[in-house]
């Protein structure tokens, strides 16, 4: 999993590339740790090249979402491939994370 973080003035653009599973979820959490603090909490995550997420990945997204909301920000995930979107749908995560 490659994580690219591009901080802009008012929001942060994140690009995910690859799969998130038990082998790299901890690393993924460390990679995005800088996004869990700061005054510009809005995050836009491009998932075009994210090929899969396990429940460990879902938990990291949940942590990030909580951190963003605690700072009155908004997190949006976009361009998910159907296979990844299905994971969010069948676990109910589509109900708590904004996916466009």
């Amino acid at each position: 999993m490659n994580v690219t973080i591009n901080k802009q003035d008012e929001k942060t653009l994140v690009t995910l590339d690859g799969r998130i599973d038990s082998t790299n979820a901890d690393q993924f959490q460390q990679d995005i740790a800088p996004l869990m603090e700061g005054d510009a909490p809005d995050i836009d995550i491009d998932c075009t090249n994210m090929t899969y997420t396990s429940s460990q990945g879902l938990r990291v997204f949940l942590l990030l979402q909580k951190s963003v909301m605690a700072r009155n920000g908004k997190m949006v995930m976009r361009n998910m491939i159907p296979r990844v979107k299905e994971v969010f749908d069948i676990t109910g995560f589509s109900n708590i994370i904004t996916i466009v």
Partner: peptide
């Protein structure tokens, strides 16, 4: 969900 190993779901599911 069976066989996916997904071990977290929301209450709303």
């Amino acid at each position: 969900l069976a066989g996916t190993g997904l071990d977290i779901v929301t209450y709303s599911v």
